[in-house]
Design a protein around this nucleic acid. Structure first.
Lengths: 229, 229
DNA sequence: AGGGTGTGTGACAATTTTATTAAACGATTA
DNA sequence: TAATCGTTTAATAAAATTGTCACACACCCT
């Protein structure tokens, strides 16, 4: 199980508190107090998750988040942002640099741990870079590509993530809400019905060879990826 | 489905607004303006979630939160705190009484609803239901699907629920009224005979392999799911 | 056999849910 | 700043499901 967390926080007392909480729950923690130190510690073996204070001095928390997403090897490490309450939430949301979740201070240790575990559960299968194939529809995480019997398919980022989630969780119904949680991430406030639109685009994208039959509507329950029928 | 929210807030206008927002989203709301009234309303049936203003007069919001966690029957009810932006964060952090989430005023209705749903989802984890099988007729709750010897069967949501109920309560007669209570839900005004129609639809759906013989009519009493005869 | 009662069936209109399309929006880049 | 790409929302169309009815049918009793 993935257990290593990089903790980036400038205030020593809070850092210590977090370290304590994390270790109580069996996580190994690597500490960093600023952008530079964090960069230094970001080498093999990479942490399984990064807990990042949004408001590092000089706004370098934002910088770090962006930098993480730009480098191939760190792109897939899940990030949980620690945000202070007073901050204008819309701004933060707007500046979203690809965090997987946000935790607003103050938070309970219980909540923090729960969210860390939730994110890890969600992302871990993603970090498995093995191609996945069903009935000639192949998704290759490494090249970030979807092939249908030798033809490369074209789709948007959200459709890719959605398909990835489906293919790693086949033969299961997911409600629109669950899909939003798992594909869009928690703390994202989007209409349920938006899922429909992305489902449609995904079906369209993989439909040329009839693969869209695997994306199934389950009336009153949600959607399912299945090879049957 | 979880739908009842206890709303504890002293300021009437805000309370009204919240009530409106909640009911718009299909939640049933119980209102309380202070500690005592909240305690009074905290009886069976317990609410599924409590929305609690942190800053009730006299700090009784804190009291209530603590009291909730001390009583066995209320301990597991998730609590979302409403906190005002200006408040001293550290104090709150220290006083943390185990809230499941915080929402900072002012907030958007959408955000509030999203958080309520998220908390409910988190607290009610997927009840891992095992597949049930009788004579080659298999119902899989996870994929929300019914299979008859490798063939996927097609049926409407009500027929699915009906079959689910039957398969989890085999070898027992149920009157039409009992079926309505258990499958449709209590306090639903529907004709008894409507059950007949759904029984027929269910039989038709599972009939291709002769599985409809398990849905048996008990004249004068109701219907029964049985593997015998 | 006939009447009375309870159940099966097909059709139908209302309602609910999902699919589809178009437009608004937001962020990024030229 | 305009142009572009992708996402979200809103509006509309399409489809599936629902409860009820009217009537056919089956069973039981006298």
């Amino acid at each position: 199980m993935s257990r290593r967390v990089l903790l980036v926080e400038d205030e020593a007392p809070i850092r210590d508190m977090l370290k304590f909480v994390l270790e109580q729950s069996g996580f190994e923690t690597i500490e960093a107090e600023d952008f530079d130190i964090a960069q230094q510690k970001l080498v093999e073996p990479y942490p399984d998750l990064i807990l990042l204070d949004w408001m590092l001095p000089g706004g370098s928390g934002v910088q770090l988040a962006k930098s993480l997403k730009q480098h191939e090897f760190t792109r897939d490490i899940p990030v949980i942002m620690l945000t202070a309450r007073g901050e204008e939430e819309d701004k933060i949301r707007g500046l979203d640099a690809g965090a997987d979740d946000y935790v607003t201070k103050p938070f309970s240790p219980k909540e923090l741990i729960a969210r860390i575990k939730a994110v890890m559960r969600r992302v871990t299968p993603t970090s498995n870079e093995q191609p996945i194939e069903f009935n000639g529809l192949k998704l290759e995480p490494i090249s970030h590509r979807v092939m249908a019997n030798e033809d490369a398919l074209d789709m948007g980022p959200t459709e890719y993530k959605l398909l990835h989630f489906f293919m790693t969780h086949p033969e299961r119904v997911y409600s629109r809400e669950q899909l939003l949680d798992n594909v869009w991430g928690t703390n994202v406030y989007v209409e349920d019905r938006t899922v429909d639109v992305h489902i449609r685009r995904l079906r369209k994208a993989i439909g040329m060879h009839g693969h869209d039959a695997m994306i199934q509507t389950v009336r009153g329950a949600g959607y399912r990826f299945s090879t049957k029928l």
